[in-house]
């Protein structure tokens, strides 16, 4: 039996040997998978644990994810408790010492970004609030710059041989990205000051970036679906402020926003939220192209 296990283990390690050339990246969300590919190029082998059509708050700790966690060299996540319902289980059951919190293999984007909506008080009576602030930092492309820089550092620490690759890729990305942000901002200039409703409080970074004005979320409390009577009340309250559109993430249940869209007679605009959320958002650049385009289309 022992011999069998040893030879089995040996066999597996031989099979996986070529993979040591690359860094195995376990990305919690598609945007971090895309960014990891931008910075890591061919040196990284990226697995995205979720798709753009899945709610990153509520992912099941599936066997396939545990298996992937086992062989990861680095885990790249949003952090700020976004993955609190599933990542701890994966980390525990994945039995991988390289990616535990506190090691170079554990990377949280939220640590590198100026967090918004940090709660002054913590109480579940306010809904599913995150103690670390609003975790949906990827909706503002400017946040990608500090995260990309830190990610390149982290990749270098894990894979010193690739230092030059990461450095060059980062420099190239930073130049391209800075120009792209400029472009999106020019296109989206007309959105400045536009009042909007949001389904869930997912858009605080986007709204801040484009200078829009969030009037209210449709959810009575974060993570709690609105009832029709709540929506009726909300409609009465906000109609004076003349919201122009409702922002909905592609993965969200659209019942509430549909109702509001019909009754307030404003468009509900489905935004990709992350890479792969909508068909036109199949790359990191495409994510913001699509976001800006969809917002502009809803305005006109």
């Amino acid at each position: 039996m022992r011999y069998f296990l040893t030879s089995l283990a040996l066999g597996f390690s031989l099979c996986t040997a070529p993979a040591f050339a690359a860094v195995q990246v376990f990305a919690c969300e598609p945007e971090w998978a895309a960014l990891s590919r931008e910075i890591g190029g061919d040196r990284v082998d990226v697995f995205a644990a979720t798709t753009g059509l899945q709610d990153p708050h509520q992912i099941q700790a599936r066997p396939s994810l545990i298996a992937k966690m086992r062989s990861a060299d680095i885990v790249v996540c949003s952090g700020a408790e976004l993955e609190v319902g599933w990542l701890p289980v994966l980390l525990r059951q994945g039995a991988n010492p390289k990616v535990q919190p506190g090691t170079p293999g554990f990377f949280e984007a939220a640590r590198l970004v100026a967090m918004k909506e940090l709660p002054v008080a913590l109480d579940r009576g306010m809904g599913d609030v995150h103690a670390g602030g609003n975790p949906h930092v990827q909706t503002d492309p400017r946040n990608m710059l500090p995260v990309a820089k830190a990610l390149a550092d982290q990749f270098t620490r894990i894979d010193a041989a690739g230092a030059d690759t990461y450095k060059n890729k980062l420099a190239e990305f930073t130049t391209r990205w800075t120009a792209a942000i400029e472009g999106w901002q020019q296109k989206a200039a007309v959105l400045r000051g536009v009042p909007v409703l949001v389904q869930h409080k997912s858009w605080v970074y986007l709204i801040d970036w484009l200078g829009m004005r969030e009037i209210a979320p449709l959810e009575p409390k974060p993570g709690i679906a609105p009832s029709t009577s709540y929506l009726v009340d909300l409609l009465n309250k906000v109609s004076a402020e003349k919201p122009r559109m409702i922002l909905v993430a592609a993965y969200e249940d659209d019942r509430g926003s549909k109702w509001m869209s019909e009754h307030a007679n404003i468009p509900a605009v489905t935004l990709p939220f992350t890479v792969g959320g909508t068909k036109d958002a199949d790359t990191l650049t495409g994510l913001y192209d699509a976001t800006v385009q969809r917002l502009l289309a809803a305005l006109h």
Binding site: L5, L8, F12, I66, A67, R70, S71, G94
Partner: peptide, 11 residues
Amino acid sequence: LTWLAPTDFYL
């Protein structure tokens, strides 16, 4: 004592 196989298939 548990052992998780280093395979994409969870075992």
